[in-house]
């Protein structure tokens, strides 16, 4: 199976190390993947608040381009993943939306048929297609003894009926266990990271970030593993600020699950973007080196 990779805006900016590590992991596992040609922004959650039809149409352009080339789309950003799936669902279930958008696409020289293209999250592909057993076999450097706090954020499992449980997912737990990590069970797996509120309503956003960091620390985590660029950004970039507000030292590295996986598969540090994090992450690997 060859995939299209849909970076979305974040993986080209604040989530640059997610892109690096994801591409590296897929290359190491021999899964062919290339960037979706001339993709546009998915519209994220903000777009739906202004004009839903425009939001869906923007997302549909990406689906149409992918379909033209007949490849499934890997959407690593949880917001992109959710929006693209929602667009597919709405185009299938609501005739007035389907007709309007198909007509507009047609005028722009594009077609879209529906279920030919599947939207996948890389975690889904790795756990359910590649498989935990296969990944365990490929591990070259075990992360034995690294206590990881798996944090899924919200949209990767929303709306419900996705590839994992909507409030208590376990896919990443199983993946990290296969890498040798000691995975911490906790009830905040899908608790909101604050999303865009960290930039708009600081007091609220910081509190949500603090809750997660504090709980990770309390449970003795060496690192937080994330699947979403916004979660990673909030927990990493605002950590210093949260430490100041709550007068508490936290110092918890916040990593993409693909970085931990990449390391275990034997990738070079420079291919994982480890140096791009604000809270230093190298110390996590020093433990097992």
């Amino acid at each position: 199976m060859e995939y299209f990779y849909y970076p979305g805006c974040s993986l080209k900016g604040t989530g640059a190390s997610y892109e690096k590590s994801l591409l590296e992991v897929f290359a190491l596992l021999g899964i062919p993947m290339k960037e979706l040609p001339d993709w546009n922004c998915c519209g994220a959650t903000s777009y739906m608040s202004i004009d839903e039809e425009v939001a869906l149409a923007m997302a549909a352009r990406n689906l149409a381009i992918a379909e033209e080339n007949g490849r499934d789309v890997i959407a690593p950003c949880s917001a992109c993943y959710m929006v693209l799936r929602k667009t597919q669902k709405y185009m299938k279930e609501y005739a007035h939306i389907r007709q309007s958008i198909l007509n507009a696409l047609k005028k722009a020289g594009l077609t879209y048929h529906g279920d030919r293209v599947r939207i996948r999250h890389p975690l889904d592909v790795l756990v359910n297609d590649v498989g935990i057993a296969e990944i365990r076999k490929r591990v070259q450097r075990s992360l034995n003894g690294v206590r990881v706090f798996p944090y899924y954020g919200c949209l990767i499992v929303r709306p419900k009926n996705g590839f994992d449980h909507a409030t208590y997912p376990t896919s990443m737990d199983r993946l990290l266990e296969a890498l040798g990590c000691e995975v911490i069970d906790h009830p905040l797996k899908t608790k909101c990271c604050g999303g865009s509120l960290t930039g708009t309503l600081e007091e609220v956003g910081m509190r949500l970030v603090y809750i997660l960091l504090k709980e990770a620390k309390k449970r003795g985590s060496h690192a937080i593993a994330t699947v979403c660029p916004l979660c990673q950004f909030n927990l990493d970039a605002y950590q210093e600020k949260v430490e100041k507000i709550y007068s508490e030292s936290l110092g918890i590295p916040v990593m993409y699950f693909t970085q931990l996986l990449g390391y275990a598969l034997g990738a070079e540090d420079s291919h994982l973007g480890l140096e791009q994090h604000i809270v230093p992450v190298q110390e996590v690997f020093e433990m097992v080196r």
């Binding site: 409030t167 906790h186 009830p187 905040l188 809750i211 709980e215």
Partner: peptide, 8 residues
């Protein structure tokens, strides 16, 4: 909504 051992 939830029973949790997340305490504050």
């Amino acid at each position: 909504a939830e029973v949790t051992d997340w305490t504050i």
